[in-house]
Write a protein that binds this DNA or RNA. Sequence first.
DNA 1: TTATTTGTTAATTAAACGTTAATTCGCATC
DNA 2: GATGCGAATTAACGTTTAATTAACAAATAA
Lengths: 224, 224
Amino acid sequence: MSYRVLLVDDEPDILEFISYNLVKEGYTVYTATNGREAVAKALEVRPHLILLDVMMPEMDGIETCGEIRSHSELAGTLIAFLTARGEDYSQIAGFEAGADDYITKPIRVKVLVSRLKAMLKRIEGAQGGAQAADPRSITIDHERHLVIREGQELVLPRKEFNLLELLYSKPQKVFTRDEIFSNVWGNDVIVGDRTIDVHIRKLREKIGDEHIVTVKGVGYKYED
Amino acid sequence: MSYRVLLVDDEPDILEFISYNLVKEGYTVYTATNGREAVAKALEVRPHLILLDVMMPEMDGIETCGEIRSHSELAGTLIAFLTARGEDYSQIAGFEAGADDYITKPIRVKVLVSRLKAMLKRIEGAQGGAQAADPRSITIDHERHLVIREGQELVLPRKEFNLLELLYSKPQKVFTRDEIFSNVWGNDVIVGDRTIDVHIRKLREKIGDEHIVTVKGVGYKYED
DNA sequence: TTATTTGTTAATTAAACGTTAATTCGCATC
DNA sequence: GATGCGAATTAACGTTTAATTAACAAATAA
């Protein structure tokens, strides 16, 4: 299931720009061009996250935020403010009003997306799947020597399992090839270069490409 | 600008709980799970305030506090102790060690936040905003092989990463081309003159021109 | 100015990694 | 001790990305 994001800005250009990029990232995007519309739409589509421009005619972002927060049906909805750099005061006011994050224009797509991801990750744990949340993507059952992915039990061959175990032991940490060799194969075994690649490939096939990231010239790491 | 708080506790759950709440309050939160990590992180991010669990394995809070106080760069950093109610005060000797406040678990979020606010208010007046130096505008995460700039994670190719690592290791020090060559390329590799320039250029592109300064006829240096 | 050093861009070369299929290994079974 | 079989490894080649060079522009110190 993809996350629903409600985008609120009075500038159609910005709306389109952000929308385009978020859709490309796999989000389901809804839009509104003013505060009232935003509240209505939020009640309708129950977005996981609302991206709210601070500066809007009539009902500004802060006010809209307050409005949204006053609806208990929307509790747990993340709100992030969009604002031009320099509107510093709004940061304070924004958090006060109940914002979860604060993003400055001009918008760098990558920054935006990574911030959204970080926010959404939070609710993943917090709400236990109530309305948002992808399930924790994979877990390892060491005892039964199983990998569980989307509720499904996978049996991995020994080397693949050990490799995954290692990477998974420290998500985000980049393991060099040497580290991988000495941990999975042992220091005295000499195997060719492609051996790791092939195992990585098989792992990716089974647990999903997105989880194992190559850092060229350095090594590999596991990501959720 | 939001205040930077460094949270130190060996319990991930507590770390997450407090962190979540402080972030919600608008603080920028950094974490560490032991004393050594805490000191390193403190030097890196220059927090306004450090929230330190007293009971930790290996290097306890008191010891960590002493360590921090011994770094003159961290003068003016506020330190608050976290401790379970009932722990023997005399044993703790927290204030002795240079603590600014003392907060007992179980933690009530509102209490915690108001105490932090009160403490931070003190430095606001006292140092007129010139308090704890700004953190480095970029940080290097060796483990994840990432450079973080304005909250944004950058992935650098190996040579660029190594080059930045070197310059960053001693900000302000001018590294000669020879030093750079022998450290980043090794003594036996021979590459052309422009190679460094090109890498410098790419680095500048990614982390911002202002950080890498040319000292003509001598070399390059990193500045914050 | 002029020589020297550095900056910039694009083109080239080199490394690292991905992929597939074929081969070898270890081990259980006949 | 032959055979079957999945796992592990190697081999060969393709692809991608990084590193280097080359050629020239710009800046700077003598």
